[in-house]
Design a protein around this nucleic acid. Sequence first.
DNA 1: TTTGAAATCCGAGGGAA
DNA 2: TTCCCTCGGATTTCAAA
Lengths: 152, 152
Amino acid sequence: MPMDKTDYIILEKLSRDSRTHCTEIAGDLGVATSTVHKRVNQLFNEGIIEQFTIVLNPDKSGGNMTTFIGINVEAEKKDEVVRVLKSIDNVLEVYELLEPYDIFIKARTQDIRELKEKVLKVINGTSGVLSTSSILTTRRHKENTCVIPRKE
Amino acid sequence: MPMDKTDYIILEKLSRDSRTHCTEIAGDLGVATSTVHKRVNQLFNEGIIEQFTIVLNPDKSGGNMTTFIGINVEAEKKDEVVRVLKSIDNVLEVYELLEPYDIFIKARTQDIRELKEKVLKVINGTSGVLSTSSILTTRRHKENTCVIPRKE
DNA sequence: TTTGAAATCCGAGGGAA
DNA sequence: TTCCCTCGGATTTCAAA
């Protein structure tokens, strides 16, 4: 079933603060609390909401160094390399692409030392990896998790 | 004040599901509910927890095409370009770096058409932008928001 | 700081429109 | 579907250790 304007508003509010009470959302929308409650459950059961989570401040927790790494691999070992990459905590994102790399990842570490120890060393020690190319960032200006759908 | 093991466990549980009841966490930890409640508030007030949010399934909401774009700009116009980039909904992340680009961004769109219309057109129409280089991805294997700190 | 109890408020489910 | 209502349970606060 397709989402309507009410769903978009719910998603937008939850995205801003997932602790927002159904009561409050219902008040803003002018509908019953139980209606919002059911909508949220539906959105979750349909998989539109993947999960409720928290965003940690990297400066104060796991580290604030972001590095993007392009990886070229032997074609037949790509799936295995992807599996290894996904298992590394410091590797937050893993993508497949056509060129100029086979795989592209985003790593988050405390510093260069941790990047080398926990990420690069593991990658370069993985069978099938031909080459890596790191793009080190110096500052993070924005980091959102998803595009909030427009309320058409 | 530094985080202890209890805090790490709370963060890990909330990260998995931010709707987890304080009661449940308290039960697992063997402490009082009010203790967990206070800890969570502290973590939030100290800014360690940046926000409570939801993760949307890109396939079913805003789009599932991820593109990384390297941008070179005139040095004196960098800040202004960053400001423009941050304001684009489809640009989820914005980083500064030294080389081979001045700015590196992650964009999320429904398709290539939207990428061109809502992202590339805007970027190339921004004063100070010298060149852009797009890395198109074909598949998303993993996408986490943050490294969950280890319970030392 | 943690706790335990008290009071308020919310979430969850069922039945009617 | 949405709404109303109610019960069980969670959140929140605070005094005491």
